[in-house]
Simulated scan of single mutants.
Amino acid sequence: MRRFLVPLALLLASAPAVAQPKVVASVIPVHGIVSAVMGDKGQPELLLAGSMPEHRASFSPQQIKELGEADLVFIIGQGLEAKLSQMSGTEAVNGRRFVELAAAPGVTTLPVRQGGTWETHDHAHEEEHGHEEGEGHDEGVLAFDPHVWLDPANAKAMALAVAQELAKADPGNAALYLRNAEDFARSVDETAEAIEAELEGVKTTPYVVFHDAYQYFERRFGLAAAGSISDVSAAAPSAQRLREIRRKITEVKAACVFREPQYDNKVVATVVEGTAAREGVLDPIGADVAPGPLAYQQILRNLAASLRQCLAG
């Protein structure tokens, strides 16, 4: 019997390793979630650096090549990564699996805010997503606010969806992916608890943001945002909207107006001039956050720290 041991060992040693799925993640929050779920079984490629405005980013030929070589491409969807959403299903990425995490089971969505110094579109919006996976949306029309990751509960649901998709692509590690998603959920709960404590004392202080990206975070932590300079798509504000937001800053005695590192800060400087409001910085994407398995939690902590620092004066 022993004479078979060496050949068997050699056979096992020479057996080809099962290739890990090639994965691409669109933006740093998604990359952080996917990285945490993949763990030591690989790292996703990051498509958009945090310094790039997610709503307006375009893609190089090399990035399109990476998409074409990926087994799975995780995006938020719902128009957040506008060019990428248009690209899914095209010949450049034919046969690749695009996963829209905004449509994942368990993700709660909120309608785009309308009226006043929030959103001014007059089309209908859905509070809960009901579209089928892969269903398209008319360009410029959002069924709901796509910044879903800023609610920690949504991030946990997204992580579970990532684990399930990875399990389909790599069944041998399915249990590991699910365990990693559970570990991620526990970490996110701990982060949310710490943020609750940090924001205590400033929750009723009014403020204005650059674009309407934060309502998931605001609702989760009970904050008093009063308006946004730009709408949910970060489109250039009109002169009328700038006048409205200046009035709002004065009316509600907004303590802070927050700019974003991905966009020109001249507009914020303009609306703050002559008011008592301070300038702050909020970053929903993570321009200064290192990509990796802890990036998502760091983005939330940075938001809380920036809010606390400016609102507390």
Rank of each mutant, 00 (worst) to 15 (best):
F4S: 13
L8Q: 11
A9F: 15
L12R: 10
A15E: 06
A15P: 10
A15D: 00
P16G: 15
A17Y: 10
V18Q: 11
A19M: 04
P29Y: 03
G32K: 06
S35R: 00
S35A: 12
A36W: 11
M52E: 08
P53D: 03
E54G: 13
H55D: 01
G68H: 10
D71V: 10
F74N: 04
I75C: 08
G77M: 10
G77R: 06
Q78L: 11
Q86A: 13
E91I: 01
R96C: 03
P105K: 13
V107A: 09
V107K: 03
P111Y: 08
G116R: 01
T120K: 12
H123I: 14
H123M: 12
E126C: 05
H129G: 10
E132N: 14
E133T: 13
E133M: 14
H137S: 09
H137V: 02
D138M: 15
G140Q: 06
L150H: 07
N154S: 12
N154W: 05
A157L: 08
M158G: 12
A161H: 04
D170A: 13
G172R: 13
N173A: 14
A174S: 13
L176S: 11
Y177K: 05
D183G: 12
D183K: 15
S187P: 09
S187A: 15
T191H: 09
A197V: 07
L199N: 03
G201T: 06
K203F: 01
T205D: 00
P206H: 06
P206F: 03
A213R: 04
F217H: 04
R219F: 10
G222R: 09
A224Q: 11
V232F: 10
A234H: 13
Q240R: 15
Q240D: 04
L242P: 02
R246V: 07
K248D: 00
K248T: 09
E251G: 06
V252C: 00
A254S: 04
F258P: 01
P261G: 06
Y263V: 07
A269K: 14
V272I: 13
T275L: 05
A277M: 00
R278D: 04
E279C: 06
P284L: 01
D288R: 12
Q298I: 08
N302H: 14
N302C: 02
S306I: 00
L307H: 05
R308S: 09
R308C: 07
L311Q: 06
L311W: 07
